[in-house]
């Protein structure tokens, strides 16, 4: 019984982490129509910021997380203004630019802080929550409420503010949004900033759990893309649903069989879902 409960809790934590990464990615794709492969590097910069401020600079953890969000949000906005704005409507161009950004950020971080040994970030919440025969580290568990909080803030922003409604309008129909006087460039900058900040939140919160190094974004961004594609690219509700699905699927398969098969099953499921419903779980057929 306890293994089932433990697996469910593990799945929930994994899903929360997937949501943090994938929601930002899908937001950028929805508004800007860009497959941003540098999203994993934004996650990495978020983790590095926490390592630098919290681990080295002894600044309180949540202050470090907040700074990480702001720093990476700023990097995202600058990237949008300087790089991505030039290639709107050109998916391939956007893809190439994001790949360039991947290398730039990796090399920059490697040059500044070295690429040798991984950067250790001590736990902020030591110990574990033990209840009903299961045990979960507090540091992992904290990802769940933090994700809930950040998604709630994002929902409020998108549903209740004028800029948020503008973002949704651009995602739905860019030309119609322009005709209604919405500043599309501004919406794109906001989407990129928010998406990048979500990635940074993932990296910053996970920094004490994973090891921090310049290439840590690779596996994360691939998982993020699988989730976004299955959820329906640009669809936040679908992405959340997809993150839940893959979080549970991967954790259950990794527990019952092994983690390598977990990854294989995940990609296999993506192919099957896309074969049946090419627009993704919550996407609409054009």
């Amino acid at each position: 019984m306890s293994i089932i409960l433990q697996t469910l809790v593990n799945s929930l934590i994994t899903s929360s982490f997937y949501m943090l990464i994938a929601v930002g990615l899908t937001l950028v794709f929805g508004v800007m129509n860009i497959a941003n492969f540098a999203h994993g590097e934004f996650y990495m910069v978020g983790a590095y910021t926490v390592w630098l401020l919290y681990s080295v600079g002894k600044i309180p953890f949540f202050v470090s997380v907040l700074v990480a969000l702001v720093v990476v949000c700023a990097i995202g906005v600058v990237a949008e203004r300087v790089l991505f704005r030039r290639v709107y409507g050109n998916v391939l161009g956007g893809f190439i630019i994001s790949i360039g950004l991947v290398f730039i950020l990796q090399v920059l971080v490697g040059q500044i802080w070295g690429v040798g040994m991984m950067k250790p970030v001590p736990k902020v919440f030591p110990g574990s929550l033990s209840v009903l025969g299961i045990s979960v580290g507090w540091q992992r568990f904290i990802v769940v409420p933090c994700t809930g909080f950040l998604l709630a803030v994002l929902w409020f922003f998108l549903a209740k503010t004028k800029t948020g409604r503008g973002l949704r309008a651009v995602a739905q129909d860019r030309e119609a949004a322009i005709l209604h006087g919405i500043d599309v460039n501004r919406c794109c900058a906001v989407a990129m900033g928010l998406g990048s900040a979500m990635a940074a939140a993932g990296g910053a919160l996970m920094a004490p759990i994973v090891s921090v190094y310049p290439y840590m974004g690779h596996s994360v961004v691939w998982t993020g893309f699988v989730i976004v594609i299955v959820g329906g690219a640009g669809n936040i509700k679908g992405t959340i649903l997809s993150a839940l699905f893959f979080g549970f699927l991967h954790t259950i398969v990794a527990t019952v069989l092994d983690s390598t098969i977990g990854n294989l099953v995940g990609v296999l499921c993506m192919l099957i879902i896309l074969a049946i419903k090419p627009e993704g779980l919550a996407g609409e057929r054009e």
Partner: peptide, 20 residues
């Protein structure tokens, strides 16, 4: 006795299976 892939970032499921 099992292996994990290089892309593994979450070891909680693996340790759950081990402790079981």
């Amino acid at each position: 006795d099992k292996f994990y892939g290089f892309e593994t970032t979450d070891f909680a499921p693996i340790m759950t299976a081990i402790l079981n």
